[in-house]
């Protein structure tokens, strides 16, 4: 169980705001911090990791107090059992892939073994290469494996997939989820990709301006208005075209583009890039088994 209750005043682009969060996470859960940039998501990860000091607060992880500003307890990042995957991966350019992983061992023998980790991420053939010579997806996998070398209690992922293309992103989502399960960690992911959030997380904390505006399961947080719809999809608007009296919308849902029509009122305030719900109410969607040939 992770308990975090912190307050920190932040200097943001829009001025001074107070980051005030208070939440508990069950051990082994996969939680996503969701919100616009500047909402304080990365700061929360860094406070958990001990890289940023809150003005006041309390953090306890699985019964161990990491931070208590009242009792003047504050474990340095080195003593917090965390794995942190940075947005820019933060791989050490002077070390090979293997050396990057070995660096995390700190002289201790690896429980799982560096070779196992490399094999698991299909990186053995790249073990002797420097990070700069790897593709984005490969660097991402190295960063992920490096964060797991120390068997962390919490895995912190700061928008780890934002720089990758869709295909690579989906492959890594699967990878992250299976690593989360086999290493039995509690995982905190920063993301604003709805499909990613739905796929991976069992808990969502939605932030705005440093405050939690809602938390719960993905369906509870994003489906709060509870439409009585028969079918509901979450997607991203790709384009809006006027076509006579109606508007034609291209919406990306997962890998697929759905074309749909909307009235002028419905498209009011919509622009490409917006996250939208696509739902059908009046008719029963027809479900047909796809025969495997």
């Amino acid at each position: 169980m992770i308990q975090i209750r912190v307050r920190k005043s932040l200097l943001m682009a829009e001025g001074k705001t107070d980051l005030v969060v208070d939440f508990n996470l069950a051990k082994g859960s996969f939680c996503t911090l969701y919100g616009k940039s500047g909402a304080g998501k990365t700061t929360i990860l860094k406070i958990l990791a001990g890289l940023v000091q809150p003005d006041e607060g309390f953090i306890a992880v699985n019964g161990q107090t990491w931070l208590d500003t009242v009792k003047k307890i504050n474990l340095p990042p080195q003593q917090r059992q965390i794995g942190f995957v940075f947005q820019d991966y933060a791989l050490f350019p002077n070390m090979t892939v293997r050396e990057n992983l070995q660096y995390a061992l700190n002289g201790k023998p690896a429980k799982h073994g560096i070779d196992n980790l490399l094999e698991r991420a299909e990186l053995q053939h790249l073990a002797h290469r420097k990070p700069a010579t790897l593709s984005g997806g490969q660097q991402q996998r190295v960063a992920l494996m490096r964060a797991l070398v120390r068997q962390p209690q919490i895995l912190l992922l700061d928008e780890p997939l934002s720089a990758l293309d869709l295909e690579m992103r989906q492959a890594l989502q699967t990878e992250i989820y299976s690593l989360h399960q086999s290493f039995n960690t509690t995982t905190l992911l920063v993301s604003h990709q709805l499909s990613e959030i739905y796929r991976l997380s069992d808990y969502i904390i939605s932030l705005e301006g440093g405050k939690i505006i809602s938390q719960g399961t993905p369906a509870a947080v994003f489906g709060q208005d509870r439409l009585s719809s028969k079918i509901q999809l979450i997607g991203e608007v790709l384009s809006i075209r006027e076509n006579g009296v109606v508007f034609v919308l291209d919406i990306l849902v997962g890998n697929h583009i759905i074309k749909t029509v909307a009235t002028k009122d419905e498209t009011e305030g919509l622009q490409p890039g917006d996250q939208v719900k696509v739902f059908a109410k009046a008719f029963n969607p027809i479900v047909q088994k796809i025969s495997v040939s």
């Binding site: 080195q78 942190f84 791989l91 120390r150």
Partner: peptide, 11 residues
Amino acid sequence: SLTEASYTLGR
């Protein structure tokens, strides 16, 4: 992030 990564890796 290089320094931060090193700290989180226990160094």
